[in-house]
Computed example of a mutant assay.
Amino acid sequence: MNPTPSRRAALALLLALGSLATAHAQSDKPLRLIVPLAAGSTVDAVARAIAPGFGKATGHPIVVENIVGAGGIPGTTQVVKAPKDGLTLGMISSNHVINPGIYKTVPYDSLKDITPIAVLATVPLVLVVNPALPVANLKELLAYAKANPGKLNYGSAGNGSTLHLAGELLISETGIDMKHVPYRGTGPLITDLIGGQVQLGFVSISQVGPQVKAGALRALAVSTPARSAALPDVPTVAQAGVPQYGFDAWIALIGPAGLPKAIVDSDYAAVKAALASPEAQTAMAAQGLTILDKGPELAPAFFQSELAKHQKLVKQSGATLD
């Protein structure tokens, strides 16, 4: 008797997971998962959420290691220089494709020196304004900005940050004139948004959701092509009147260049299994993330297009960090 399609799919998954131990030799050794950002960041939260399931699927104990500084360059450098045995991987963010434009020297090629394994999730951003600003929606904001050129200040988490580039893309698509105010992180930015020192900015939904619900900030639009489940009543920027706009930060799993295909494929199967766990799903939802399914076949093209897009925005912004 031939197995049913559902039984065939289940068998295929079991065979894929069963091959992980073969692809990952010496399974008693720990797998080092480098997060080139601070503990407590969104990327760090994702790494720790999937670590238990990822470790179970690969047969390795997972050690999440934070190596911070210079937009993630020191941590990513350790990933690209690691042996090609699959025991050192990296959990990176959009900074990876921004850094070549804002740093004069990056000690690796952002495309050639990595092996993309999976793009795990996107981080929706929301455009918020201080409630004292007399605008109720994005169209009114754009009209206000055009009537008052150069008078609006938009804040970000720093020069060349994703929050900065999200604002630059809005300027590019609409022709409005706003002044950029860089902060040292999102904490001070949110404080000054609420206080009115800056009038608007793009911030990740997880970081300002409570302030939006409390009325301390007004949400005008989300940056992603589709609405966010975390703010279902807030339209996208495209829906709100800027049809070509689309911007989101993202999180991806990479290894050093030349990682054997067997390891890449098994890691992709393992991370998919980890993301499907209730614990990971809950953690991702709490961060306001949208889970993606871009594996080793789709991830390289994604990296190429994101590098081109972000480098164009960096050049437009004139941002530099050294």
Rank of each mutant, 00 (worst) to 15 (best):
K261E: 15
D267F: 03
K146A: 14
V314W: 09
A301D: 15
A23S: 14
D85L: 03
V198C: 04
M1H: 07
G59A: 07
P182R: 12
K315E: 15
A143D: 08
L289A: 09
S19G: 12
D322C: 12
I194H: 03
G160H: 11
L13V: 13
S204Y: 05
I73A: 07
V242A: 10
S228A: 08
G255M: 03
K294S: 09
Y268T: 06
V123F: 06
A286S: 14
T42A: 07
T224K: 05
T4Y: 06
I254S: 06
T122D: 13
P124Y: 02
L13E: 13
S223E: 01
L89F: 11
V129H: 00
K261V: 08
A226G: 03
L231T: 08
H60A: 07
K309W: 00
E173Y: 02
V123N: 15
T320I: 01
L170A: 08
A25I: 02
S110R: 12
D233H: 10
L298C: 03
P225A: 11
G72M: 09
H180K: 12
L253Y: 11
A145L: 00
G318Q: 04
I190Q: 00
S93I: 05
L289T: 08
T224N: 10
K29I: 08
G158E: 14
P235D: 12
G318E: 05
G59Q: 01
I254G: 03
T162P: 00
T77V: 09
A121T: 14
G241K: 12
I62N: 08
D265C: 00
S317W: 06
N130L: 04
A147V: 04
R32K: 14
A301R: 10
P300E: 05
P3E: 06
I117M: 01
L11Q: 13
E140V: 01
V63P: 00
H180S: 14
G90V: 04
H60Y: 04
P182G: 06
P134K: 11
K104D: 15
K315F: 04
V212C: 03
P124H: 01
Q287E: 15
K81V: 00
I73S: 08
K312D: 13
E306S: 12
L37F: 13
D113S: 15
L14D: 14
Y268P: 07
A301L: 10
G59N: 04
K294H: 13
L321A: 10
P30H: 07
S228Q: 05
V46C: 06
A301H: 09
A10Y: 04
V264Y: 06
P149V: 07
L170P: 09
I251L: 04
K213M: 08
I263D: 10
D233T: 11
A273V: 02
P124S: 00
G255S: 02
A16R: 13
K179H: 14
H24F: 15
H180G: 05
A39Y: 02
K112I: 01
L275E: 15
R32Q: 15
L163Y: 06
S156Q: 04
A221I: 12
S156N: 02
A240D: 13
V63A: 13
A39K: 13
A157P: 01
T191M: 07
L321R: 14
G160N: 01
G318M: 07
T290Y: 05
P225L: 09
M1I: 02
V135N: 00
L289D: 06
T115E: 11
R8G: 00
P83Y: 10
A229Y: 03
D293C: 09
P256Q: 05
T88I: 01
P116M: 09
S317V: 00
T105K: 07
P107N: 12
